[in-house]
């Protein structure tokens, strides 16, 4: 179902429908994540992927326009590139561990320690929260920095356009 949604997004021209389908896609992904026992990630995906992203995309469509132009050339080259990349990646997966096996490498390293000691060391029963806020706290600090930078960038981009309109209406087209 996710694959069908993704392919439809690729084919549709009406951007409004594309945005709605991407929301549907995010909800499907969140469901898959619940099945894979990643409940925290599923919550975030449903809130951020289906919620905030949709609001942002719809806001952009409101400010621009919602119909995509018909492409002038056929998309054979990108299709070929995508096929080659996909083939190579699928070949690469054959060396990866099989699904759901408890003896694969990623379950041997640092994760068992988190699961065994995490509650005693941090006092939080949800290990994902414990790792996020305690063991890998610097990671989260870096993430916050990224969001801050993105926010500053957005404010600068959108404010500039408004001051251009009011101060120098003739220069607006020069943009750069």
């Amino acid at each position: 179902m996710m694959a069908i949604t993704a392919v439809t997004i690729a084919r549709l021209r009406n951007l409004f429908a594309v945005v709605v389908l991407s929301t549907l896609y995010s909800f499907l992904m969140a469901t898959v994540l619940v099945v894979l026992d990643a409940v925290d990630v599923a919550l975030t995906e449903a809130a951020v992927g289906a919620g905030i992203s949709t609001v942002l995309l719809l806001g952009t469509l409101y400010l621009t326009r919602s119909e995509e132009a018909v492409p002038v050339h056929r998309a054979w080259l990108p299709f070929g590139v995508a096929l080659v990349v996909g083939g190579l990646l699928a070949f690469g997966t054959l060396g990866l561990p099989e699904f759901g096996r408890p003896d694969s490498d990623i379950h041997q390293h640092v994760a068992p320690r988190y699961l065994e000691q995490g509650k005693a060391e941090t006092g939080v029963p949800n290990i994902v929260t414990a790792v996020l806020a305690s063991y890998r706290g610097f990671d989260t600090l870096g993430e916050t920095t990224v969001i801050f930078t993105a926010g500053v960038g957005i404010i600068l981009l959108l404010r500039r356009s408004r001051s251009d309109e009011s101060d120098r209406p003739t220069d607006r087209r020069d943009g750069s």
Partner: peptide
Amino acid sequence: SNPLPHVLILTAIVVGVATLAL
């Protein structure tokens, strides 16, 4: 299940929406 990928992807989702907004 292994909590470490969950943490990494939580970070990735949030960074993803920041790049999308930008």
